[in-house]
Design a protein around this nucleic acid. Structure first.
Lengths: 214, 214
DNA sequence: TAGATTAATGACCGGTGGGTCATTAATCTA
DNA sequence: TAGATTAATGACCCACCGGTCATTAATCTA
């Protein structure tokens, strides 16, 4: 028996979101180059041809994933920073919390690792990600550090370099959590890891006369 | 005119080393999956067939690069740690210096990024790298921290997690330095970055009554 | 120098996956 | 209900690359 094909459904409105969701999990799982558009389509319950009906090509699909899922979070962070009234440690904590719940603790957390991994081979998407995400996120932390120094809460440091040093363990946490099998570092509780990190940062940033925050 | 092919040379002894050198730069530049063995061969001044005369396949070639260039440095580190007599900060510094001159400041610095990037798609090489490199390197730092705590030089911390937090910015430095174009974080002097990092770590690790080391 | 040895070659094979397009069929409209 | 519209399909094309192997030629040996 020739196994009649399943009936087609026409769902023009729902397709893009379903394709983006499937693309996210495939990209995070396999990386950019190794993701097969046929797999994305099948996971979205659709054929490869249909995918091309909604997105021009692989690159456009990836950009749409970022635009749809990550860029809005930066806008949210900028709103938080603009309206923040308390001390600067709390501002950093609020930004970290927002990032953790919207990105760090979701499937989107795999995107930074993908960018790190494939920036060299796909300069187009790396440049896109840099201007849409990295530059804005980094600016948020730099501004928070500068604010803390101006308010006398932090000792004076090189804010740009310190921002990179502070962000590094957070990014590495994402990288490790999305490295199946081999790279098992920091395989314990991510909360313990982040707490250990924050502990070091607070001791390192606080002005000497102040009591150490934990 | 049919452009006579250049004369062949028979250099059985020199080929492996030249192929390994070419493979290192290609792997670091392109990543594992995207490295084409034809490019490796051409860069070594040889045809693709010749490469297969000396290495079974891509995986064997990569393992040979690691075995040849990175594994010996771990043995060296273990020797240093075993014979170290001074304080534990100095031990950490000596290990970092050795690593920096043998790996961090050479083309081999691109290998950790490659592993991070492609562990998911190539579990075989990830597992190899983990047992040959990561586990031994991590053990060195853990032992140094433990030593410092036992000697009363460091405050008591969770040595495993702290090791990961300490190593993260160092790994991220490699990642950033090997991310052309897009990911321009920490694009200043790597020495400034490492100094900033060590500064934070020292303040974070030192027992409170002690004077802060810089 | 002639024949044997083997380092080196490059044409070739097969699987893969991005992207295309003629065809099919679900839904809408008159 | 008939015809038009268009969402959806999947067979197909083609470039790419890991890996193979019959052939070539550099070097050695008798």
């Amino acid at each position: 028996m020739p196994a009649t094909p399943p009936p087609r459904k026409r769902r023009k409105e729902a397709r893009p979101a379903e394709l983006l969701a499937a693309a996210l999990t495939q990209f995070v799982d396999k990386g950019y180059a190794a993701t097969r558009l046929e797999d994305v389509a099948r996971q979205a319950g659709v054929s490869k041809g249909t995918l091309y009906l909604y997105f021009d090509n692989k690159e456009a699909l990836f950009k749409a994933v970022v635009q749809d899922g990550i860029v809005p979070v930066l806008a949210e962070g900028e709103t938080i920073a603009a309206g923040h009234a308390g001390d600067s440690f709390t501002l950093l904590e609020r930004l970290l919390d927002t990032w953790w719940s919207r990105i760090g603790n979701t499937a989107y957390a795999g995107i930074p690792k993908l960018i790190i991994a494939e920036a060299g081979n796909f300069p187009e998407i790396a440049a896109f990600y840099y201007e849409q995400v990295i530059s804005r996120g980094r600016a948020l932390v730099i501004a928070a550090l500068r604010r803390g120094i101006e308010h006398g809460e932090f000792r004076p440091v090189d804010v740009e370099t310190t921002t990179d040093v502070i962000l590094a363990p957070i990014l590495m946490l994402l990288v490790w959590r999305h490295s199946p099998g081999g790279c098992r570092m920091a395989d314990g509780d991510p909360r313990l890891y982040l707490r250990t990190h924050l502990d070091l940062v607070c001791r390192g940033l606080t002005r000497p006369p102040h009591p150490v925050r934990v």
